[in-house]
């Protein structure tokens, strides 16, 4: 693994993605949603701050996900379908470097758009006179960690399915990831111990995205827990590394013709 080709690929992936039209449309969409939250909040019977934060953070997370789903699956697949990968892999670059470069490029796109979205949200809160504190930044960081996992999964899926299928699968994983917390708890209540164990095993492999929701903490301005921050980061990083290793494994066994 060498750093130069990886960074070069990441940088140019980022530049290429920024010029994608899909990206601009997503940005517009977010503005519409946030403005809607701003307009709705007076109707929320004194719960305006809460509604703005709920809707705002939810749409930040969801648009981040859409970004990963659309850009991520399209990106890698475009490589294989449109055969840019032929040019890349004829250069002295390993498949692992290819995966990492693409992933980092995608993650940079995600990070930049998350920052932009959070700034917009903060602007809306400020102009509405609702208070917020550093927990909002932590919420943004958690959203980023969640999308890190999703980006790794996007790389993984596109390594072997079509973009439409992988977008579908990714949506499935997104939903399952958000439900997995509740489903694990339910599984423990199942009368059939064997079925319960099996369900649990499945959900141990699925990511637990529900843990990355931070709306509650922001709404109530709960203190930031440093230990939890560390666990959250390690989980996202380790899980993504595992998924990326699998993607490399798949990509190495593939032919490109």
């Amino acid at each position: 693994m060498t750093i130069v080709p990886v960074m070069s690929l990441a940088r140019h992936t980022f530049i290429d993605a920024l010029r994608e039209r899909a990206f601009v449309v997503l940005g517009l969409f977010l503005v519409v949603i946030l403005v809607a939250a701003r307009l709705l909040s007076p109707l929320a019977l004194g719960e305006g701050r809460r509604v703005t934060l709920d809707v705002g953070l939810a749409s930040v997370g969801f648009f981040g996900f859409l970004l990963v789903a659309l850009l991520g699956t399209r990106m890698v697949h475009k490589e294989i379908d449109c055969k840019t990968i032929l040019v890349l892999l004829s250069k002295p670059i390993r498949r692992s470097e290819f995966v990492l470069g693409k992933f980092l490029g995608l993650v940079t796109v995600v990070a930049v758009s998350l920052i932009a979205m959070l700034l917009m949200l903060a602007g809306i809160l400020l102009t509405s006179g609702y208070e917020f504190d550093a927990t909002l930044a932590v919420a943004g960081y958690y959203a980023f960690l969640e999308l890190l996992i999703m980006a790794a999964l996007a790389m993984f899926l596109t390594a072997f399915t079509s973009p439409v299928l992988s977008t579908f699968f990714l949506m499935g994983l997104f939903v399952a990831g958000h439900l997995s917390g509740s489903l694990i708890e339910m599984a423990q209540l199942l009368p059939n111990a064997c079925a319960a164990k099996m369900l649990e095993a499945i959900f141990y492999v699925l990511p637990r995205l529900d843990l990355y929701s931070y709306t509650l903490e922001v709404v109530h301005g709960l203190p930031v827990d440093g230990g939890q921050l560390l666990w959250a980061t390690s989980y996202a990083v380790i899980y993504s590394v595992g998924v990326l290793l699998l993607s490399v494994l798949i990509l190495r066994s593939r032919e490109f013709s």
């Binding site: 070069s8 140019h12 530049i15 993605a17 250069k91 002295p92």
Partner: peptide
């Protein structure tokens, strides 16, 4: 999305 110059820059990086 890249310009011709950026494309060459990318290739240089990969090489």
């Amino acid at each position: 999305g890249l310009t011709a110059g950026e494309t060459l820059d990318l290739m240089a990086g990969l090489s």
